[in-house]
Each structure stands twice: as structure tokens, then as C-alpha cells.
């Protein structure tokens, strides 16, 4: 049985989703619902902390694809942090570092939202 949990925190108006466990086609709807809830309440500055994410398949990656355009239309972003090498490799295989900012530490991603002088599409991992 896949085990997947999502925690939600807020810091300086940035909303942080903490992913834990296995993100596959079975559990991806949970992440979709969490992001939908944030967008539904006009929260567009989002950090996804992957520290405890053990596994991701394309169904999980597809959820980020589904929301990023809408988030950026509202001047927000989805930034990803704290990935294990195994999880990062899957993102990397699909070219995600070209379009998403990926940080080693959560705090760097939060700070980035307030540093508008830098190019938002550069790769940081």
C-alpha cells in the first residue's frame, strides 16, 4: 500500500508543502487536491519540500506540470527543494531543471520569492 502524506506550512506568505512517502498514480490526486486548494484561495507562492519524498513517478511530475502555468500567470511560482539524488534524477531525466527552480534548502527557495532581481528560470541545483 502506497504511503503518501502532505504537510502544509506558511512562512512570510509563502506556502510550503512537505511531501512524504511515495508519489505515484495512486497518490498523485492528493497532491493535485492540495495544490488546487492553494490556488483556489489565491495562494500562488508555493515551495514544495521533497526532503521525505522517497519516490516519484511521472504521475507526480505531471501534477507540477498541470499547475505551473496558472501559478505563473498570477505572478507566483512553484519552487522545489531538498530532493534526494534518486528523486532529483527523475526530475532531471524529464528536463524539469530547465523550467523549475530547484533548491537544496527550503529557506533559499523562500528567500528567492523576495529577490526579484534574479532570473527566475535559472537552475540552482
Amino acid at each position: 500500500m502506497s504511503d503518501f502524506k502532505i504537510g502544509l506550512r506558511e512562512q512570510n506568505s509563502v506556502h510550503i508543502l512537505e511531501l512524504k512517502g511515495y508519489l505515484d498514480a495512486h497518490t498523485a490526486p492528493k497532491l493535485e487536491e492540495a495544490l488546487q486548494n492553494l490556488l483556489g484561495s489565491s495562494r500562488y507562492n508555493i515551495v514544495v519540500n521533497c526532503k521525505d519524498l522517497s519516490y516519484i513517478s511521472s504521475a507526480g511530475l505531471g501534477v507540477f506540470m498541470a499547475f505551473i502555468e496558472d501559478v505563473r500567470k498570477h505572478s507566483g511560482d512553484i519552487k522545489l527543494t531538498n530532493m534526494s539524488p534518486k528523486v532529483y534524477n527523475v526530475f532531471d531525466l524529464l528536463g524539469f531543471p530547465l523550467l523549475y527552480e530547484i533548491f537544496k534548502e527550503e529557506q533559499d527557495a523562500i528567500t528567492r520569492f523576495f529577490d526579484k532581481s534574479k532570473n527566475p528560470s535559472s537552475t540552482l541545483q
Binding site: 513517478s57 511521472s58 504521475a59 511530475l61 505531471g62 506540470m65 498541470a66 505551473i68 502555468e69 527523475v90 531525466l93 524529464l94 528536463g95 524539469f96 530547465l98 523550467l99
Partner: peptide
Amino acid sequence: DMKEYMTHFRRGGLGVYLMRSL
């Protein structure tokens, strides 16, 4: 073409690409 694919935020079809890559 993954760059083209990502630029348009396409969602499906990633699995087949992954299978072939892995």
C-alpha cells in the same frame, strides 16, 4: 523533444519517455 514538451507544459506521455530512458 523534451524541451519543446516542457515549454508547453504538456502533462501526458512522460511515462513512455521515462521507460525508454531508464
